[in-house]
Design a protein around this nucleic acid. Structure first.
Lengths: 210, 210
DNA sequence: GTCTATATCCGGATAGAC
DNA sequence: GTCTATCCGGATATAGAC
């Protein structure tokens, strides 16, 4: 057949048939972002990982800023989808616990940190449009946390001292910082943070937290 | 005099007489580190700020790794000195509050983040010896926090739920994450974290926290 | 859509004059 | 101890063939 007549170049094409390169780039970049940070990963890292050339990435994302912005927008969309989904399934404590679980995966998967941690740390060293998206992401997470805490307090499934907005930032900050500390001091540190958070929300933390 | 006979070159030298260039480099680098992160600052940034040439920095710190390691070692030394000093002056709550205060300065000075936040975020993208120093720094801070919490509990000046080690990581993580969140969402976020922490240590937080 | 080849720039680093 | 000049490698980005 025609395919057999054509050598390596076509084989490579065939390999990429049906594969969504753009999506794979985003996946690889997301992984790199949460491992190395924005300024410490390059198009080369992605190219090697996907076995494509540098220029192929530039076709999908002309500049690195485009890629960075797309990443944060994807985080935001994913968070929206996730909150919609979880709202149907669980009460406030269940939701919060499910949220914690995403961080557990970051910590255990292997020492990833969360988007907020990366963007916050490098905030002064990322393009303006990424900063804009980062602000939106943080606001959306914050608002969801506040709502969830207030709901939990009303339901009686969560108990905590003080203003729910203050508690929300504290929780968000502790999770974010906890992942970073875990990298340096070992993953058990992150579990200690989780246990303390659970304890202060009046849950034993022994049931669902590993 | 002899000085007047010699032109610009000597004037520059004269300007630097009595100035500790090595120390100034460290100061500038520390500032850049907490603003932009390790991988996003260059010798050029420092050179411009101090009005010296690139090569002058390499004289004091042959490689960027040397500079990075020196920075973390200085953080460690400073922390040791600080804890010695504060131990003579205050009870457990006073010590902890003084520790909080250093973070308040980071947040207010202008949107700096803490050493642990930088090193944790970029952990996979910094030289091995820096990682080593970072681990030591984090351990030292952690141990001091645990001691302080236990002392406070014994004294009755601090009250909190659960294991003092867990509480120590939670506090450290919340401070670290809080600074990063404050960059993206505004400085009031950091104060909310502080108030919540104080509240959960059974202090009004209204007295000494701005 | 992906490749090869190349342009451009920047950061870390060294040599040698002063 | 600091300078000027320069090297080298790596990173972003573009041009044009396939």
């Amino acid at each position: 057949m025609l395919d057999l007549l054509k050598p390596t170049v076509v084989r490579k094409r065939a390999l990429r048939q049906g594969r969504d390169t753009r999506e794979e780039i985003l996946n690889a970049a997301e992984d790199l972002l949460q491992r190395r940070g924005y300024n410490a990963f390059s198009y080369q890292h992605i190219a090697v990982q996907l076995d494509i050339r540098n220029a192929a990435i530039h076709y999908h994302f002309p500049s690195k800023e485009d890629l960075g912005v797309a990443l944060v927008q994807r985080y935001r969309q994913r968070f929206r989808d996730w909150t919609d989904e979880i709202a149907a399934k669980a009460n406030a404590w269940g939701r919060l616990n499910a949220y914690f679980q995403t961080y557990v995966e970051y910590a255990e998967a292997q020492c990833k940190i969360c988007p907020g941690g990366v963007l916050g740390s490098e905030f002064e060293a990322i393009p303006e449009e990424m900063r804009h998206e980062a602000r939106l992401l943080m606001r959306e997470i914050f608002e969801w946390l506040v709502e969830t805490l207030e709901l939990g307090r009303a339901q009686g499934s969560l108990t905590f001292l003080g203003d729910s907005r203050h508690k929300a930032v504290e929780i968000g900050a502790a999770l974010q910082g906890g992942l970073q500390i875990a990298r340096m001091a070992g993953p058990e540190r992150f579990h200690q943070v989780l246990q303390q958070l659970a304890l202060e929300l009046c849950h034993s933390g022994a049931d669902s937290l590993p």
